[in-house]
């Protein structure tokens, strides 16, 4: 029973959602499934957030390595939670009560967002500039013919975007204009790149159809058939 019902639920839900694509009166079910997911995800946060708190509390109580930083996480979590849930300092609270916009300008929630979360995100994101440099260096030591093709293609596209690249082939006569780096990079992007993208996208679609079928038909069920704990 405990194993069969989840597999049945997956089968029925998946089947209905596929059919709903072709049955107009069922279209509403597809819309609701998306909202259902959001609601379930909020409930699931009690489990996820609970795990986050548990692990950090354990770190502090058992004085594990780096336990001091767990305190910072816990304090940050509770402060932000309180600021948001109670909409503290939210200027719209006066008129609207709890219907006030969570991210209203001037609210403490928004202030912490601007001063802490936004810059942290942006900084972490900008680290990519360094990592793409080290990855490029790695790609330069092309290990095999495939990697060489990747490298040459990347190099042409990169050159095509830079002034140096354009100047370097500027001397070419008109009949060789195809090989001017800016034209060559455009051609690579618009033709060869497009072909590869299409092959990947069609492959992905087939992969998803096949995996979805395996899941719906209950052949792929490792994620559901947990024992009778």
């Amino acid at each position: 029973m405990k194993r069969t019902i989840p597999i049945l639920i997956t089968f029925i839900t998946g089947g209905i959602i596929v059919l709903a694509e072709f049955i107009p009166p069922w279209a509403i079910l597809r819309e609701h499934v998306l909202i259902y997911f959001q609601i379930i995800a909020v409930f699931a946060f009690f489990l996820g957030g609970g795990s986050l708190l548990k692990i950090n509390c354990q770190k502090v109580v058992r004085k594990r390595e780096d336990w001091q930083f767990a305190i910072v996480t816990l304090v940050g979590f509770f402060i932000m939670l309180a600021l948001g849930l109670f909409k503290m300092g939210n200027p719209e609270m006066v008129d609207l009560g709890f219907a006030a916009d969570l991210n209203a300008s001037g609210s403490w929630f928004k202030n912490v967002f601007d001063a802490v979360k936004a810059p942290l995100s942006a900084s972490m994101y900008s680290l990519l500039a360094f990592f793409i440099a080290s990855a490029s260096y790695r790609a330069f030591r092309a290990k095999n013919s495939d990697a060489t093709v990747l490298l040459v293609s990347a190099f042409i596209i990169l050159l095509g975007q830079t002034f140096v690249g354009v100047v370097s082939t500027g001397w070419m006569p008109e009949w060789m204009s195809f090989f001017k780096v800016e034209n060559l990079s455009l051609w690579l992007l618009a033709k060869a790149n497009l072909a590869g993208q299409r092959a990947i996208l069609i492959g992905i679609a087939l992969g998803i159809i096949s995996m979805s079928l395996r899941v719906i038909l209950g052949i792929e069920r490792t994620h559901l058939s947990g024992g009778d704990e």
Binding site: L206, G207, S210, R214, E220
Partner: peptide, 30 residues
Amino acid sequence: LIGEELFAASAYLSEDPKQMGSLKGQDVGK
């Protein structure tokens, strides 16, 4: 694992004939 290979991976690793059969079905799609 490029695109489609990601979705095929569990079938490959399972060594379950039913799952592997589905990969041949994908090839018909191709």
